[in-house]
Simulated scan of single mutants.
Amino acid sequence: MSRIIAFAGSTRVGSYNKMLLRAAVENARRAGGEVTHVDLRDYPMPLYDGDLEESEGQPPHATELYEMMKEHQGLLLACPEYNSSITGVLKNTIDWVSRPRDGDPPMAAFAGKTAALMSASPGALGGLRGLVHVRAILGNIGVTVIANQIAVPRVMDVFDDTGTLVDARTAEKVAGLAKELVETTNKLHG
């Protein structure tokens, strides 16, 4: 069984993307995936800076995530859209975790992995524009991003007050994407 690491590109406690991710994680587990759910809020890192890296090395949280990600074959990402692009926290995480480490091949935490992308937004496009950028970044560092993706518009209408996904159509899409990620990851890495 392939292992999948899941996180949202947000640190906000009430993030809609974190809610979407929780629903996807449950579905990936139901589909037979072994999923590690990570909250980037628990892994704060300074902004990537080559001088800082040279003088102090990798931040401990970047090293922790790097080691975790090396042990997983799949990525399940919920990606908020900020100004039509990727969030700073997600980009910074990718930047630090993608840095070379002695003894490991380049991009060891990303190369050869399979990823599924989702986004949610109060707006009409559901964060779709930001997913284009995330897809390009991941593709450039050796991740196979599955073609299917989910962008949930008017997200406040698909979750109840407890953060439970209540919209049947969205729930069906999330279940399908999670299952596709598990099956694709198993085929490629099983």
Rank of each mutant, 00 (worst) to 15 (best):
residue 1 M to G: 11
residue 2 S to H: 00
residue 3 R to V: 00
residue 9 G to Q: 06
residue 11 T to N: 10
residue 13 V to E: 14
residue 13 V to R: 10
residue 13 V to A: 14
residue 14 G to S: 13
residue 15 S to D: 03
residue 22 R to H: 12
residue 22 R to D: 15
residue 23 A to W: 02
residue 24 A to E: 03
residue 25 V to K: 04
residue 26 E to S: 15
residue 27 N to L: 03
residue 28 A to K: 03
residue 30 R to D: 15
residue 30 R to A: 15
residue 31 A to W: 09
residue 33 G to A: 01
residue 34 E to W: 01
residue 35 V to C: 07
residue 37 H to T: 01
residue 38 V to G: 01
residue 38 V to L: 14
residue 40 L to T: 07
residue 41 R to A: 14
residue 41 R to V: 07
residue 43 Y to D: 02
residue 47 L to V: 13
residue 47 L to C: 02
residue 49 D to A: 10
residue 51 D to F: 05
residue 55 S to C: 02
residue 56 E to L: 11
residue 61 H to F: 05
residue 62 A to C: 10
residue 65 L to V: 13
residue 66 Y to W: 09
residue 69 M to G: 04
residue 70 K to C: 12
residue 72 H to A: 14
residue 76 L to H: 04
residue 77 L to Q: 06
residue 78 A to E: 05
residue 78 A to S: 15
residue 81 E to K: 07
residue 81 E to N: 09
residue 84 S to Q: 11
residue 86 I to D: 02
residue 86 I to L: 14
residue 90 L to T: 05
residue 91 K to N: 09
residue 92 N to R: 00
residue 93 T to D: 00
residue 93 T to Q: 03
residue 96 W to C: 11
residue 96 W to T: 12
residue 97 V to C: 10
residue 97 V to H: 05
residue 101 R to I: 11
residue 103 G to E: 13
residue 103 G to V: 12
residue 104 D to V: 04
residue 105 P to T: 13
residue 106 P to C: 10
residue 106 P to G: 10
residue 108 A to T: 09
residue 109 A to C: 06
residue 109 A to R: 02
residue 111 A to M: 09
residue 113 K to Y: 10
residue 114 T to M: 08
residue 115 A to R: 06
residue 115 A to I: 10
residue 116 A to L: 11
residue 117 L to R: 08
residue 117 L to I: 10
residue 118 M to R: 08
residue 120 A to N: 03
residue 124 A to G: 13
residue 126 G to W: 03
residue 129 R to L: 13
residue 131 L to D: 05
residue 133 H to F: 12
residue 136 A to E: 13
residue 140 N to Y: 00
residue 140 N to P: 00
residue 141 I to L: 06
residue 141 I to W: 01
residue 143 V to T: 01
residue 145 V to F: 04
residue 146 I to L: 07
residue 147 A to I: 11
residue 149 Q to D: 15
residue 150 I to H: 03
residue 154 R to E: 14
residue 157 D to K: 12
residue 159 F to P: 06
residue 160 D to T: 11
residue 163 G to Y: 03
residue 166 V to Q: 01
residue 168 A to K: 14
residue 170 T to M: 12
residue 170 T to L: 06
residue 171 A to R: 08
residue 173 K to D: 14
residue 174 V to F: 01
residue 177 L to G: 05
residue 178 A to Q: 01
residue 179 K to I: 00
residue 181 L to R: 02
residue 184 T to D: 11
residue 185 T to W: 02
